[in-house]
Design a protein around this nucleic acid. Structure first.
Lengths: 105, 105
DNA sequence: AGAGGATATGTCATTTTCGACATAAGTCAA
DNA sequence: TTGACTTATGTCGAAAATGACATATCCTCT
């Protein structure tokens, strides 16, 4: 993995290949991270496309502005469940979700 | 929703249409639940297809037999993340995951 | 410049999910 | 039947994720 990419991930709270973990993450873990990042980007694009503020989207999914911000930033503390909840609430179809996963990683 | 189906969900810990929640779950919440159940079934099928015990699969994903059992039972306490982890570890391709999501709900 | 709205970042108490363990309940061959 | 596996279910303290809140930063206006 490129150093710049690793640094970007670590900024978001991901621990990618720390000192004691010479080989880094497993393929499955990397796939999950990449999937989260794809979903995060999609949330942002879709929200902006719908001309909603983070605050408005937060209300729609019974969350908070700060959590939406973290979602879109790809923060490690955000679960796939919450990302899915947001995407579905933004009208993402199952077909689109499927495409998203197929494209991830 | 059919009463039998609701009862089956509640057995697994899901709260579907409790007394104070006359209208039941939102479409998005139902979709998430259905997705989890589809993934749960797939984990079981794939594990059995690979002739692995729950204990063996548990080790492969650094979890425990009881959690795998709960996964396959569609228990509410199991996250989509863990289900994804198991499916990926069982060799599920992104294409197959995509198909799974498109089929859900 | 300053005001107002949006977004980013950090923290915290509560809730959810976690692995682990014990144990019950199935399955099946000897 | 007995015994060895396997799976189901309940519980627990630990860890992760959550909504909420405060506050900082960033943009657009005027």
């Amino acid at each position: 993995m490129k150093e710049a990419k690793r640094n970007a991930l670590e900024k978001k709270g991901w621990r990618v290949g720390s000192a004691g973990d010479l080989l880094g993450l497993s393929d499955e873990e990397m796939t999950l991270i990449e999937l989260k990042l794809v979903m995060a980007r999609s949330v942002k694009v879709r929200r902006q496309g719908s001309r909603l503020s983070q605050e408005q989207l937060a209300k729609m999914i019974h969350s908070s502005q700060s959590r939406v911000a973290k979602m879109e930033a790809g923060d490690r503390s955000v679960s796939i469940e919450l990302l899915l909840r947001a995407l579905l609430r933004l009208g993402t179809t199952k077909r689109e979700l499927a495409r998203m996963i197929a494209d991830a990683a």
